[in-house]
Computed example of a mutant assay.
Amino acid sequence: MDEVSSYAWIAWLVLILVFVTIEMLTLELTFLSLAIGSVGGLVSGLLGAPWWLQVLITAVIAIVLLAFVRPPLLRMLKRGGDPARSNVDALIGIEGTVVASVGENGGQVKLGNGETWTARLSPVTLPRVVAAGERVLVTAVDGATAVIVPAERIVE
Rank of each mutant, 00 (worst) to 15 (best):
P72D: 03
M76H: 12
K78T: 10
G107E: 03
L77S: 07
V129C: 03
G112W: 09
G112D: 14
D89T: 04
G96W: 00
I94S: 15
P127Q: 04
N87A: 13
S122P: 02
S101P: 12
L77V: 10
V102K: 05
A100I: 14
N105K: 15
R85M: 11
Q108N: 13
P123N: 05
S101V: 06
A100R: 13
A131Q: 08
K78E: 10
V102D: 03
V98Y: 04
G103A: 00
N105H: 15
T118I: 10
L77W: 11
T118K: 11
V124R: 09
I94L: 15
V88N: 07
E104P: 09
D82G: 02
A90F: 12
V88E: 09
D82I: 03
G114S: 00
L74D: 04
T116F: 00
V109K: 02
G103K: 03
S86I: 12
V98T: 00
A84E: 13
P83Q: 09
G81L: 10
G107A: 01
I92S: 08
T97E: 15
L126F: 12
I92R: 07
T97D: 13
T97V: 15
I94Q: 15
S122C: 04
E115R: 15
G106W: 01
T97R: 14
A119D: 01
K78S: 10
A131I: 05
P83A: 08
E95C: 08
R85H: 11
E95I: 08
N87C: 08
R128C: 00
P123C: 03
L91D: 06
T125V: 07
G107H: 00
A100T: 15
K110Q: 15
P123S: 06
A100K: 11
D82Y: 06
R128T: 04
V124G: 05
G106C: 04
N105V: 10
T125E: 14
N87V: 08
E104Q: 14
R75M: 09
P123T: 05
N113A: 06
R128E: 06
T97I: 14
P72H: 01
G103P: 03
A90Q: 08
R79Y: 11
L74M: 12
D89S: 08
R85N: 09
L74W: 07
R85Q: 12
Q108R: 15
K110A: 12
N105D: 15
R79F: 11
R128Q: 06
T125F: 01
L74I: 14
A100L: 11
N87M: 11
G107T: 04
V109G: 01
R85P: 09
V129L: 06
L73E: 08
V88H: 04
P123G: 04
A84T: 13
L121M: 00
G96K: 00
V98G: 01
S101H: 11
T116N: 00
L91I: 12
R75P: 03
T118Y: 09
A84N: 11
S101G: 04
T118Q: 11
L111D: 03
V99T: 15
L126N: 13
T125Q: 09
E104Y: 14
L77E: 06
G107W: 01
I92D: 09
N105F: 12
D89R: 08
A84D: 11
D89Y: 03
L111P: 03
L121P: 02
E115I: 13
E95T: 14
Q108M: 15
V98H: 01
A119W: 01
S101A: 14
G103N: 05
